[in-house]
Amino acid sequence: MPYWYYDKKDLQNTPSYREGIPNDTENRYRKEGARFIIDTGSKMDLGYNTVATGVVYFHRFYMFHSFRTFPRYITACCCLFLAGKVEETPKKCKDIIKVAKSLLTEQKFGTFGDDPKEEVMTLERILLQTIKFDLQVEHPYGYLLKYVKCLKGDKAKLQKMVQMAWTFVNDSLCTTLCLQWEPEVIAVALMFLAGKLSKFEVVDWNGRQPKHNAWWDMFVEDITMELLEDICHQVITELIGATRIGKIVSKINVGRSQCIKWIAL
C-alpha cells in the first residue's frame, strides 16, 4: 500500500524544486491551486469532503511531478473532477471547466490548451497513476465531530470551539499538512488550537483513564506538545498570509497579544 506522508526534508526536495522552482514559489503554487479547488468546488455546491479530497490529490500529485511540467490550475480542475467521482458527487468535466474559466484570468486559463476537456481527460489518467489509484481519502472533519462528542463542558463553548477548528481544517488545506500528518493528528492539533484561542480548556472527557494526560491521549498515541505547536504554527502562518487573523481575533474576542503569542509559538 502506498504511504503518503513525508518529512520536512522531502517536502523541500520536491520535483518542482529539483527543476529550479524555489520552495517559497512552490508553496505559493500549492496554495493557489488548493484555494482554486476550494473556490471552484464551492461555486459548484460540492461538499467539503469532495473539495478536501481534490486538494489532497493535488498535493500528492506534486510530490511526483513538477509545477513546471504540469500547470497548477488544470491539475486542480482534474483533481476536483476525479474527487467528484470518488465521493459520488460527480460533475461533468465541461461544467468544471466552465466554472474554472469564470474564475481565472485569460492568461491563466490559457494553460488549459486548445482543447481543455481533452487535456483534463488525459491528465485524469496521469493523475490516477500518480496517486496509485489510492482514491479514498480521510479528512480531519469527521474526527473533529468524533472528538467533540467525548469532551465535557459548556455545550455552546464546545460548539464554538469545534466550529473554529473546522475553519482551521479548511485553512490547513492550503498547507502541506496533509502530506505530513494523518487526519486524526491534524484534527487533534486544530481542536487544541481552537480551544486555546477560544479560551476553552478541556478538563474532563468521557472515557477518561488515569493514564491520560490530555483528552487526545484517548484517540492518538504519542502526541507531543512540540508536534501540536508545529502543526498550529503552520496553520497560523497560513492565516496570516490570508490576512484573516484580524478577523479571527475580533470574532473570537481574544486579545491581539494573546494571538500574537500563539503566532510566536
Binding site: R68, F70, G110, G113, D114, E118, E119, T122
Partner: peptide, 26 residues
Amino acid sequence: MSASSSSQAATTVTSVNDVSALFQNE
C-alpha cells in the same frame, strides 16, 4: 499558447498532451 511574461513563463507547457508523451512509467 501562453507566451506569458510573468515569472512562470518558463513553467507553462502549452498542452498536457504534449507532456503526456514524456510521461512514461518505468
